[in-house]
Amino acid sequence: MKVPLRWPVGDEAASELVLERFAPEQTFKTKVYAALKQAIINMDIYSTPEPTWIDERQLSERLGVSRTPVREAIAMLEQEGFVKSMPRRGIMVLKKTRREVVEMVQAWAALESMAARLVTENASDEEIATLRTLFKDFGEAHKPSDFVSEYSQANILFHQTLIRLSGSKVLADMTANLLVHVRGIRQITIGRDDRASRSIVEHLNIIEALEKRDADAAERFSRDHTLGLSTYVDEHGDIFD
Rank of each mutant, 00 (worst) to 15 (best):
R71P: 02
G228R: 12
F147T: 09
T133A: 00
T175V: 15
S149V: 06
G81V: 13
I128A: 13
R220D: 10
A34L: 11
P69C: 09
K96N: 12
D194V: 12
T189Q: 08
Q160L: 15
A110R: 14
W53A: 09
H203L: 05
V101R: 01
M86G: 00
K169S: 08
E150Y: 02
H225A: 12
D216S: 09
N42V: 10
D234F: 10
A196H: 05
Q187V: 14
R57G: 00
A129V: 08
Q79D: 14
E12L: 15
V201A: 05
N155E: 15
V18C: 02
I206G: 11
R117L: 11
R62G: 00
V180P: 01
I40S: 03
D11K: 12
R88C: 09
M43Q: 01
A75L: 07
M86T: 14
T52I: 10
I207A: 04
L77H: 06
I54S: 00
L229N: 01
R132W: 09
L157V: 11
I74S: 07
L134K: 08
I239E: 01
E112Q: 11
F240Y: 09
E56K: 00
M114G: 13
A176H: 01
Y33I: 02
V9S: 06
S66E: 02
Y33S: 07
A176D: 12
D234H: 07
R99Y: 06
A172H: 14
L229T: 08
M104H: 00
N42L: 12
A39T: 00
A13V: 11
Y151N: 07
P144F: 08
K31Y: 01
R88V: 14
M114D: 13
A123Q: 11
G191R: 06
N42F: 08
T30W: 10
L157M: 14
E16F: 06
V170P: 01
A218Q: 00
E127V: 15
L210H: 07
L157R: 13
K31S: 03
V3N: 04
Y46M: 08
L131M: 08
R186Q: 11
L210D: 13
R164N: 10
Q38D: 10
D11Y: 09
S85K: 14
A196S: 14
G228N: 09
G184M: 04
V148F: 05
A176F: 02
R57W: 00
S113E: 13
A154F: 02
Y151P: 12
H225Q: 12
E16V: 15
G90P: 02
D193R: 08
Q153I: 06
M114F: 01
E12F: 12
D137Q: 11
V9F: 01
L162E: 05
D216F: 04
V102H: 05
